[in-house]
Protein backbone atom coordinates (compact mmCIF):
# COMPACT_ATOMS: atom_id res chain seq x y z
CA UNK A 1 0.00 0.00 0.00
CA UNK A 2 2.70 2.45 0.99
CA UNK A 3 4.60 1.39 -2.12
CA UNK A 4 1.56 1.91 -4.27
CA UNK A 5 1.11 5.33 -2.79
CA UNK A 6 4.77 6.10 -3.38
CA UNK A 7 4.44 4.99 -6.97
CA UNK A 8 1.32 7.08 -7.42
CA UNK A 9 2.86 10.22 -6.06
CA UNK A 10 5.96 9.57 -8.15
CA UNK A 11 3.67 9.42 -11.18
CA UNK A 12 1.96 12.61 -10.13
CA UNK A 13 5.27 14.34 -9.62
CA UNK A 14 6.52 13.09 -12.99
CA UNK A 15 3.31 14.45 -14.52
CA UNK A 16 3.82 17.86 -12.98
CA UNK A 17 7.47 17.94 -14.06
CA UNK A 18 6.57 16.96 -17.58
CA UNK A 19 4.26 19.92 -17.93
CA UNK A 20 6.99 22.19 -16.60
CA UNK A 21 9.33 20.86 -19.27
CA UNK A 22 6.88 21.86 -22.01
CA UNK A 23 6.59 25.36 -20.54
CA UNK A 24 5.21 27.39 -23.36
CA UNK A 25 6.47 30.91 -23.76
CA UNK A 26 5.68 32.04 -27.30
CA UNK A 27 8.16 31.76 -30.11
CA UNK A 28 8.34 35.45 -31.01
CA UNK A 29 10.90 38.24 -31.10
CA UNK A 30 10.53 41.69 -29.63
CA UNK A 31 11.53 44.38 -32.11
CA UNK A 32 10.89 47.89 -30.81
CA UNK A 33 9.57 50.34 -33.43
CA UNK A 34 10.65 47.94 -36.13
CA UNK A 35 14.29 48.79 -35.30
CA UNK A 36 15.77 47.48 -32.08
CA UNK A 37 15.68 43.72 -31.42
CA UNK A 38 15.69 42.91 -27.73
CA UNK A 39 17.02 39.72 -26.14
CA UNK A 40 13.97 38.09 -24.54
CA UNK A 41 15.50 34.66 -23.94
CA UNK A 42 19.06 33.60 -23.44
CA UNK A 43 21.27 31.09 -21.66
CA UNK A 44 20.93 31.34 -17.89
CA UNK A 45 23.82 33.11 -16.11
CA UNK A 46 26.18 30.76 -14.24
CA UNK A 47 24.78 31.60 -10.80
CA UNK A 48 21.29 30.29 -11.71
CA UNK A 49 22.27 27.52 -14.12
CA UNK A 50 21.56 24.85 -11.47
CA UNK A 51 17.89 25.92 -11.55
CA UNK A 52 17.27 27.19 -15.09
CA UNK A 53 18.71 26.49 -18.54
CA UNK A 54 17.36 29.64 -20.06
CA UNK A 55 16.16 32.95 -18.71
CA UNK A 56 13.12 34.52 -20.36
CA UNK A 57 11.45 37.87 -20.33
CA UNK A 58 7.87 38.09 -19.03
CA UNK A 59 7.00 39.52 -22.46
CA UNK A 60 7.09 35.97 -23.90
CA UNK A 61 4.29 34.91 -21.54
CA UNK A 62 1.84 37.63 -22.46
CA UNK A 63 -0.87 37.56 -25.13
CA UNK A 64 -0.46 38.70 -28.75
CA UNK A 65 -2.08 42.13 -28.24
CA UNK A 66 -0.16 42.96 -25.08
CA UNK A 67 3.09 41.98 -26.80
CA UNK A 68 2.27 44.16 -29.80
CA UNK A 69 1.55 47.19 -27.58
CA UNK A 70 5.04 47.01 -26.17
CA UNK A 71 6.68 46.73 -29.58
CA UNK A 72 5.55 50.18 -30.72
CA UNK A 73 6.21 53.33 -28.69
CA UNK A 74 3.03 54.95 -30.00
CA UNK A 75 0.99 52.09 -28.61
CA UNK A 76 2.94 51.68 -25.38
CA UNK A 77 1.01 53.67 -22.74
CA UNK A 78 4.14 53.70 -20.55
CA UNK A 79 5.87 56.10 -22.95
CA UNK A 80 3.61 58.99 -21.88
CA UNK A 81 5.21 58.81 -18.46
CA UNK A 82 8.66 58.71 -19.99
CA UNK A 83 7.87 62.03 -21.67
CA UNK A 84 6.67 63.50 -18.39
CA UNK A 85 9.91 62.43 -16.72
CA UNK A 86 11.93 63.96 -19.55
CA UNK A 87 10.45 67.35 -18.63
CA UNK A 88 11.33 66.80 -14.98
CA UNK A 89 14.85 65.77 -15.99
CA UNK A 90 15.36 69.19 -17.53
CA UNK A 91 13.69 71.24 -14.78
CA UNK A 92 15.63 72.79 -11.88
CA UNK A 93 14.46 71.88 -8.39
CA UNK A 94 15.66 72.29 -4.80
CA UNK A 95 17.86 74.80 -3.01
CA UNK A 96 20.77 74.34 -5.45
CA UNK A 97 18.59 75.36 -8.40
CA UNK A 98 19.85 72.46 -10.48
CA UNK A 99 18.17 70.00 -12.81
CA UNK A 100 19.28 66.43 -13.40
CA UNK A 101 20.43 67.57 -16.84
CA UNK A 102 22.71 70.24 -15.35
CA UNK A 103 24.95 67.54 -13.91
CA UNK A 104 24.21 64.52 -16.09
CA UNK A 105 23.63 66.01 -19.55
CA UNK A 106 20.98 64.50 -21.79
CA UNK A 107 18.90 61.65 -20.35
CA UNK A 108 20.11 59.54 -23.27
CA UNK A 109 23.64 59.82 -21.85
CA UNK A 110 22.44 57.60 -18.97
CA UNK A 111 22.06 54.49 -21.17
CA UNK A 112 24.64 52.46 -19.24
CA UNK A 113 23.00 53.03 -15.86
CA UNK A 114 19.82 50.92 -15.57
CA UNK A 115 21.51 47.65 -16.59
CA UNK A 116 23.89 47.76 -13.59
CA UNK A 117 21.37 48.60 -10.86
CA UNK A 118 20.97 47.66 -8.04
CA UNK A 119 24.63 48.24 -7.31
CA UNK A 120 26.97 48.87 -4.41
CA UNK A 121 27.42 52.50 -3.39
CA UNK A 122 30.78 53.12 -1.74
CA UNK A 123 29.86 56.29 0.11
CA UNK A 124 26.65 54.89 1.59
CA UNK A 125 28.22 51.46 2.09
CA UNK A 126 25.10 49.69 0.93
CA UNK A 127 23.47 48.41 -2.23
CA UNK A 128 21.53 51.18 -3.99
CA UNK A 129 18.51 50.63 -6.16
CA UNK A 130 17.93 53.18 -8.90
CA UNK A 131 15.27 54.80 -6.72
CA UNK A 132 17.72 55.18 -3.82
CA UNK A 133 20.31 56.72 -6.16
CA UNK A 134 17.82 59.22 -7.57
CA UNK A 135 16.71 60.25 -4.09
CA UNK A 136 20.35 60.54 -3.03
CA UNK A 137 20.90 63.04 -5.85
CA UNK A 138 17.74 64.93 -5.01
CA UNK A 139 18.49 65.18 -1.32
CA UNK A 140 22.26 65.60 -1.26
CA UNK A 141 23.08 67.22 -4.61
CA UNK A 142 20.00 69.26 -5.45
CA UNK A 143 18.78 70.16 -1.98
CA UNK A 144 15.35 68.91 -3.04
CA UNK A 145 12.85 66.77 -1.20
CA UNK A 146 13.03 63.03 -1.62
CA UNK A 147 10.37 61.46 -3.78
CA UNK A 148 8.13 58.76 -2.32
CA UNK A 149 9.91 55.48 -3.06
CA UNK A 150 7.16 54.07 -5.26
CA UNK A 151 5.30 57.30 -5.99
CA UNK A 152 4.45 58.68 -9.43
CA UNK A 153 7.46 61.01 -9.91
CA UNK A 154 9.87 58.26 -8.98
CA UNK A 155 8.35 55.52 -11.09
CA UNK A 156 8.23 57.93 -14.06
CA UNK A 157 11.92 58.74 -13.63
CA UNK A 158 12.81 55.05 -13.51
CA UNK A 159 10.79 54.62 -16.72
CA UNK A 160 12.86 57.33 -18.39
CA UNK A 161 16.12 55.78 -17.20
CA UNK A 162 14.98 52.34 -18.38
CA UNK A 163 13.79 53.63 -21.76
CA UNK A 164 17.18 55.14 -22.62
CA UNK A 165 18.77 51.75 -21.84
CA UNK A 166 16.38 49.63 -23.88
CA UNK A 167 18.27 46.90 -25.66
CA UNK A 168 21.27 47.12 -23.35
CA UNK A 169 22.08 43.98 -21.43
CA UNK A 170 21.18 43.56 -17.77
CA UNK A 171 24.44 42.99 -15.92
CA UNK A 172 24.31 43.49 -12.17
CA UNK A 173 27.34 42.62 -10.07
CA UNK A 174 26.73 39.99 -7.41
CA UNK A 175 30.22 39.67 -6.00
CA UNK A 176 32.50 41.94 -3.97
CA UNK A 177 30.74 44.14 -1.41
CA UNK A 178 27.29 43.34 -2.90
CA UNK A 179 27.60 39.62 -2.26
CA UNK A 180 26.11 39.54 1.24
CA UNK A 181 23.05 41.46 0.03
CA UNK A 182 22.73 39.11 -2.94
CA UNK A 183 22.85 36.08 -0.61
CA UNK A 184 20.12 37.63 1.53
CA UNK A 185 18.00 38.17 -1.58
CA UNK A 186 18.51 34.58 -2.65
CA UNK A 187 17.39 33.37 0.77
CA UNK A 188 14.23 35.46 0.49
CA UNK A 189 13.56 34.14 -3.02
CA UNK A 190 13.43 30.57 -1.77
CA UNK A 191 11.54 31.24 1.49
CA UNK A 192 7.98 29.92 1.54
CA UNK A 193 5.99 32.78 3.04
CA UNK A 194 2.49 33.30 4.32
CA UNK A 195 -0.39 31.01 5.03
CA UNK A 196 -0.12 29.54 1.52
CA UNK A 197 3.59 28.80 2.13
CA UNK A 198 4.72 29.70 -1.36
CA UNK A 199 8.13 31.03 -2.39
CA UNK A 200 8.98 33.07 -5.46
CA UNK A 201 10.68 29.91 -6.75
CA UNK A 202 7.54 27.77 -6.35
CA UNK A 203 5.73 29.91 -8.89
CA UNK A 204 8.46 31.49 -11.04
CA UNK A 205 11.09 28.74 -11.15
CA UNK A 206 9.20 25.45 -10.69
CA UNK A 207 6.00 26.43 -12.50
CA UNK A 208 6.69 29.05 -15.17
CA UNK A 209 4.79 28.34 -18.36
CA UNK A 210 1.87 26.86 -16.40
CA UNK A 211 -1.49 28.42 -15.67
CA UNK A 212 -2.31 29.34 -12.09
CA UNK A 213 -6.01 30.11 -12.27
CA UNK A 214 -6.25 32.74 -15.06
CA UNK A 215 -2.56 33.71 -15.00
CA UNK A 216 0.19 32.39 -17.26
CA UNK A 217 3.21 32.18 -14.98
CA UNK A 218 6.44 33.76 -16.21
CA UNK A 219 9.87 33.59 -14.62
CA UNK A 220 9.10 36.78 -12.68
CA UNK A 221 11.97 38.70 -14.27
CA UNK A 222 12.40 42.44 -13.68
CA UNK A 223 14.17 43.47 -16.90
CA UNK A 224 10.89 45.02 -18.09
CA UNK A 225 10.28 47.37 -15.17
CA UNK A 226 8.62 49.61 -14.59
CA UNK A 227 5.68 47.82 -16.19
CA UNK A 228 2.56 49.50 -17.48
CA UNK A 229 -0.20 47.15 -16.34
CA UNK A 230 -3.47 47.01 -18.21
CA UNK A 231 -5.04 45.86 -14.95
CA UNK A 232 -4.43 49.12 -13.06
CA UNK A 233 -3.57 51.37 -16.05
CA UNK A 234 -0.43 52.82 -14.52
CA UNK A 235 3.28 52.21 -14.23
CA UNK A 236 4.19 49.70 -11.52
CA UNK A 237 7.48 49.66 -9.70
CA UNK A 238 9.51 46.56 -8.97
CA UNK A 239 8.82 46.70 -5.24
CA UNK A 240 5.09 47.15 -5.81
CA UNK A 241 5.11 43.95 -7.83
CA UNK A 242 7.08 42.10 -5.15
CA UNK A 243 4.59 43.35 -2.57
CA UNK A 244 1.65 42.08 -4.61
CA UNK A 245 3.18 38.65 -5.10
CA UNK A 246 4.00 38.24 -1.39
CA UNK A 247 0.55 39.49 -0.37
CA UNK A 248 -0.92 36.80 -2.63
CA UNK A 249 0.74 34.14 -0.49
CA UNK A 250 -1.40 35.46 2.40
CA UNK A 251 1.73 36.85 4.03
CA UNK A 252 2.71 40.05 5.77
CA UNK A 253 4.63 41.85 3.04
CA UNK A 254 7.74 44.00 3.26
CA UNK A 255 7.58 47.70 2.40
CA UNK A 256 8.78 49.25 -0.86
CA UNK A 257 12.35 50.44 -0.28
CA UNK A 258 12.93 48.11 2.68
CA UNK A 259 16.33 46.38 2.98
CA UNK A 260 14.61 43.04 2.30
CA UNK A 261 13.16 44.25 -1.01
CA UNK A 262 16.47 45.87 -2.00
CA UNK A 263 18.20 42.51 -1.45
CA UNK A 264 15.45 40.62 -3.27
CA UNK A 265 15.67 43.07 -6.17
CA UNK A 266 19.41 42.56 -6.54
CA UNK A 267 18.94 38.80 -6.55
CA UNK A 268 16.00 38.81 -8.99
CA UNK A 269 17.83 41.29 -11.26
CA UNK A 270 20.82 38.95 -11.33
CA UNK A 271 18.60 36.09 -12.51
CA UNK A 272 17.98 38.24 -15.59
CA UNK A 273 21.63 39.00 -16.38
CA UNK A 274 21.87 38.58 -20.15
CA UNK A 275 18.33 39.79 -20.97
CA UNK A 276 17.73 43.23 -22.48
CA UNK A 277 16.41 46.13 -20.47
CA UNK A 278 12.89 46.59 -21.86
CA UNK A 279 11.17 49.07 -19.55
CA UNK A 280 8.68 50.49 -19.62
CA UNK A 281 7.08 47.22 -20.65
CA UNK A 282 3.40 46.35 -21.02
CA UNK A 283 1.85 43.58 -18.94
CA UNK A 284 -1.67 42.56 -18.02
Amino acid sequence: MTNLRGALSALIIAGTMASVAVADPVDDSLIINGETTLVTRTKAPAHVSDALDEVMSGWLFRGTETRAMQADDFDNPGMIFVEQAEDVWNTADGSEGKSCADCHGASSDMSEVRPTFPKWNDAAEEVFTLEMQVNDCRENRMGAEKWKYNGGEMVNMTALLASVSRGNTVNVAIDGPAQATWEQGKELYYTRTGQLELSCANCHEDSYGLMIRADHLSQGQINGFPTYRLKNTKLNSIHDRFKGCIRDTRAETYSPGSPEFVALELYVASRGNGLSVEGPSVRN
Partner: peptide, 24 residues
Protein backbone atom coordinates in the same frame (compact mmCIF):
# COMPACT_ATOMS: atom_id res chain seq x y z
CA UNK B 1 4.34 20.00 -1.96
CA UNK B 2 3.35 23.33 -3.42
CA UNK B 3 -0.19 22.58 -2.26
CA UNK B 4 -1.23 24.79 0.68
CA UNK B 5 -2.08 23.17 4.02
CA UNK B 6 -5.78 23.90 4.47
CA UNK B 7 -6.18 22.82 8.10
CA UNK B 8 -3.14 24.20 9.80
CA UNK B 9 -2.63 27.22 12.07
CA UNK B 10 1.01 27.08 13.12
CA UNK B 11 4.52 27.13 11.69
CA UNK B 12 4.07 29.85 9.05
CA UNK B 13 6.67 32.44 8.05
CA UNK B 14 5.21 35.98 8.15
CA UNK B 15 1.57 34.86 8.18
CA UNK B 16 -0.72 37.61 6.93
CA UNK B 17 -4.27 38.74 7.54
CA UNK B 18 -5.85 37.08 4.49
CA UNK B 19 -4.87 39.01 1.32
CA UNK B 20 -4.34 42.41 2.95
CA UNK B 21 -0.54 42.19 3.10
CA UNK B 22 -0.80 43.06 6.81
CA UNK B 23 0.30 40.84 9.69
CA UNK B 24 -2.07 38.17 10.94
Amino acid sequence: SMMPSFYKTEGFIRPGNAYTGKAA
